[in-house]
């Protein structure tokens, strides 16, 4: 059976809207887990998601999701749920009706649909508002009910376009936890965002996009180590930062050692992180230095994105 294939595969996919480029020559294989599509507005994230779910067709190339294509809708959409960015609903429906009707369209019986709808509504925390018209919902509630609709049929692949937009901090935290849980259950969760620090926490892998091209993909640490031209930054907090800085600075791969203002830490920039960690262990033992923390300072999506694309990553957004 085709669904034995576990990946989502883009094979040389391009999409042009007339003369406007959507995405170009995308070759991508997405394994199970939480994958984030990261890029600024207009970088092609939504196009990639629409291509994946058959809402638009590629100009060239092919896409398969678990070995299926949207041309086999009965099988394909049994496995796929897509929460789009369109903040719109069929007119006049309540939250419950919205989820319930979409389950009926899937050919699920009324009794079963009723049960699944309430289960999804509970999962997004909207039980109390479920019987009210969607038109009266806040932006966050609308986002949550759309999320509920996309997971109600228990998909294997969940595609989410900017799913955290409009959510308050509490709802954000809950939703992120939900994505993490779904990813751990073995589901493909593909989400797009331009708020990097949020997706950074939960992503197993990232796809970085810019101007319609995939500029990097893979696990975030792997992608970071590929960026050779930008030395890695590592913050070391210890009781003798001055001594540590002087010892480290004599190493060839260390290009900068900068003391923290509070006098309790040193920020190292190195071209070889593995070598650095080995040397650090040695120095700590030899000089009897007490370490508090050792943490990469730019081993995150935000920094990687800045290095690769040059976008403004300040404030956590691209």
């Amino acid at each position: 059976m085709s669904t034995e294939i576990k990946e989502i595969v883009f094979d040389n996919v391009s999409k042009f809207y007339g003369e406007v480029l959507g995405v170009n020559r995308v070759n991508l294989t997405i394994p199970p887990g939480v994958t984030s599509l990261v890029g600024p507005n207009g970088s092609g994230k939504t196009t990639l998601m629409n291509l994946m779910t058959g809402l638009v067709r590629p100009t060239q190339g092919s896409i398969t999701v678990l070995g299926l294509t949207p041309q086999q809708p009965e099988e394909f959409f049994r496995h796929v749920g897509y929460c789009t960015q369109f903040d719109s609903f069929p007119k006049g429906v309540t939250g419950f009706e919205f989820v319930f009707q979409s389950l009926l369209l899937r050919g699920i019986t009324r009794v079963q649909a009723n049960q699944l709808a309430w289960e999804a509504i509970d999962r997004v925390g909207l039980r109390e508002a479920a019987l009210r018209k969607v038109a009266g919902y806040s932006k966050g509630m609308r986002q949550r009910i759309r999320l509920g609709q996309s997971i109600a049929h228990h998909p294997t692949v969940l595609v989410l376009d900017e799913p955290l937009n409009g959510l308050d901090p509490m709802a954000r935290a809950e939703t992120i936890a939900l994505f993490e849980a779904l990813g751990k259950e073995g589901m493909h969760v593909i989400l797009s965002s331009h708020v990097l620090h949020e997706v950074d926490k939960i992503s197993d892998q990232v796809v970085l996009m810019s101007f319609g091209y995939v500029v990097a993909e893979g696990k975030i640490h792997g992608v970071r180590s590929e960026v050779k031209e930008h030395p890695m930054q590592i913050l070391v907090r210890c009781d003798a930062p001055n001594r540590l800085a002087s010892r480290l600075f004599s190493q060839d791969h260390v290009v900068e050692a900068k003391l923290n203002n509070d006098g309790r830490g040193v920020l190292i920039r190195t071209r070889d992180a593995d070598e650095f960690y080995m040397i650090l262990n040695k120095i700590v033992v030899e000089d009897n230095i007490t370490l508090e923390t050792v943490a990469p300072a730019d081993d995150d999506v935000n920094s990687v994105y800045q290095y690769l694309v040059g976008g403004a990553g300040g404030g956590g957004t691209v």
Partner: peptide, 15 residues
């Protein structure tokens, strides 16, 4: 116009 056609297109349904 109401931007709701995609709900149908995302159902496991032949067009």
């Amino acid at each position: 116009v109401e931007k709701s056609l995609h709900y149908y297109f995302l159902s496991p349904m032949r067009r």
